[in-house]
Design a binder for these strands. Structure first.
Length: 493
RNA sequence: GUUCCCAUCGUCUAGGGGCCUAGGACACCUCCCUUUCACGGAGGAUACAGGGGUUCAAAUCCCCUUGGGAACGCCA
């Protein structure tokens, strides 16, 4: 491979603001970001909003917000707050670059590399069906490709609308792409038909903008998903037609859904914003999506973005698609969660607890202690809700899973003894030792032991027979709360 | 249909001719820790799609088959 790294690396991520940013897009952005950082180059965010019908301002803001949340910050593009241009080679929104595309298209028209085509949709469709029936490529074969430019301009002046197509039929040769991840890929030129550059309303089309912008924005490396591999041929043709030097391309394998199909928004691809709502950490998202198509040289499974930047190498990019596995993702998130300092984790769960209007003590010592107890039970931040709920007096209930425990013969005696002993306790919060002593007394009084002792008490404390250790849990609750819970539990017998 | 891409445990992967009776991780199973559940620790089961070559030697290189995917738009 002749991948001589240019002195100054410039890469870009170019989303179209027609929906949310999903994990596939995020991974493309991540790899580009890593490559830029690793090579001390620039990371550009370009907005591909030439589909007027589907592009929206809200979606653009959403994508930008997700990028910011992921901490994939760009050097040039649009400002994350105002969405105004940022950088010397703008505008960075394609909808604001129309005159540029027009100019390039004119050049291609004048040099005979492109032509105006006036075929109707019906004609196109008919031709397509015919070709398919005969087992040929369903490519356009426009009669207008032979028209001279003045002839077409005359037709235009008469009020006809036409598209500008790139002329491919005379290019009878193979195009060779030295793909940075796949090696040599050979495309026969008839793999594509005369593709549209400018729509009849003058708006440019993806492949055209992409080539023009990558050239104008001095992009040196294009890393994108494999679905764009066939597009590369069209872009190569445009570069050749304009006499431009091509950037390096690298096509990465796709992220697949459970059916081994390309992840698509249509089929409910995972949105980054949704992951955030479910309580995934941005560092875990980055860690996990990096693993879907790349591996750490030391075989590490859990790592930070800084670590990734240090060791990132495109030679470790995979060639085959990867299924997005929610289960492993949760584990990765749990690992990141547990690596957080306690008070930082406390801070992170606040939005989730706030959603449920939970009132918890303000005491930082209590807060830190509670995190220490619940940390190993959390996989996503949202788990904190069910973990902390029992600590919230308002929501103490005996859960259905406690049913069996409540039926045990010694349960009533245990609950009664427990309630009496707690009532007799003189202070607000008991220590671990004091709890253990009380527990022992319950045991002596009732003769209950083992699960017949612990589970009823746990039900009286958190409403269910399983959960964190009592000796850590109980010191997190004040006497008043413990007594009223015990009373409630007894009342249910 | 045509073209292109891809192929190691269920999943993500390591491996790039001998170090491979194929390593790691998630999930699963067993045990330990724990008077519960998790966490943690120790083990276990499970994979080179098939067939031909090349070679002293193939998971690794080549070819074919099969399977999967993508693209063939006035979407990106």
């Amino acid at each position: 491979m002749n991948s001589q790294i240019s002195p100054h690396v410039r890469v870009r991520f170019a989303p179209s603001p027609t929906g949310y940013l999903h994990v596939g897009g995020a991974r493309t952005a991540l790899y580009n970001y890593l490559f830029a950082k690793k090579n001390k180059g620039e990371f550009i965010l370009r907005i591909e909003d030439t589909d007027e019908a589907r592009s929206t301002q809200e979606s653009l803001q959403g994508v930008v917000d997700d990028m910011v949340w992921l901490n994939l910050l760009w050097d040039e593009g649009v400002d994350s707050k105002t969405l105004k241009d940022l950088g010397p080679l703008g505008p960075y929104r394609q909808s604001e670059r129309l005159p540029i595309y027009k100019e390039v298209a004119d050049k291609l028209l004048q040099t005979g590399k492109a032509y105006y085509c006036f075929m109707t949709d019906a004609e196109l469709e008919q031709q397509r069906e015919q070709a398919l029936k005969e087992g040929r490529n369903p490519h356009v074969n426009s009669p207008y490709q032979h028209w001279t430019l003045p002839q077409a301009q005359e037709h235009l002046k008469a009020g006809n609308k036409g598209v500008v197509r790139f002329k491919t039929q005379e290019l009878k040769k193979d195009y060779i792409l030295n793909d940075l991840v796949r090696g040599e890929v050979k495309f026969p030129s008839d793999m594509v038909g005369d593709f549209v550059l400018l729509r009849s309303d003058g708006m440019p089309v993806y492949n055209f903008c992409c080539a023009v912008d990558d050239h104008m924005m001095k992009i040196t490396h294009v890393f994108r998903a494999e679905e764009h591999l066939p597009n590369t041929l069209r872009q190569l043709m445009i570069y050749e037609g304009m006499g431009w030097q091509t950037p390096e391309f690298g096509h990465m394998a796709l992220i697949l859904d459970e059916d081994r199909q390309k992840l698509s928004k249509r089929k409910g691809a995972v949105a980054c914003s949704q992951l955030r709502d479910e309580g995934y950490l941005n560092s875990a998202v980055l860690n996990f999506i990096a693993l879907l198509g790349w591996s750490h040289p030391e075989g590490k499974e859990i790592f930070s973005i800084e670590d990734m930047i240090n060791v990132f190498d495109i030679s470790r990019l995979n060639h085959s698609g990867a299924i997005f596995d929610r289960v492993k993702f949760k584990w990765v998130n749990a690992m990141h969660l547990r690596a957080l300092p306690n008070m930082e984790l406390w801070k992170q769960i606040q939005p989730f607890l706030a959603r449920e209007n939970m009132e918890l003590p303000q005491d930082p010592v209590w807060q830190e202690k509670s995190i220490e107890v619940f940390k190993s039970y959390m996989e996503v931040l949202a788990d904190a809700i069910e973990l902390y709920r029992p600590l919230n007096d308002k929501s103490y209930v005996i859960l259905p899973e406690a049913e069996e425990t409540m039926k045990w013969e010694p349960t009533k005696a245990v609950l009664t003894a427990w309630k009496e002993l707690v009532e007799a306790y003189p202070n607000e919060y008991m220590t671990e030792d004091e709890f253990l002593k009380i527990q022992d007394e319950v045991k002596n009084k009732t003769g209950a032991k083992g699960k017949h002792l612990f589970m009823p008490i746990r039900v009286a404390v958190i409403g269910k027979p399983h959960g964190a250790e009592l000796k850590i849990l109980v010191p997190l609750m004040n006497k008043k709360s413990l007594v009223s819970r015990a009373a409630l539990a007894l009342a249910q017998l």
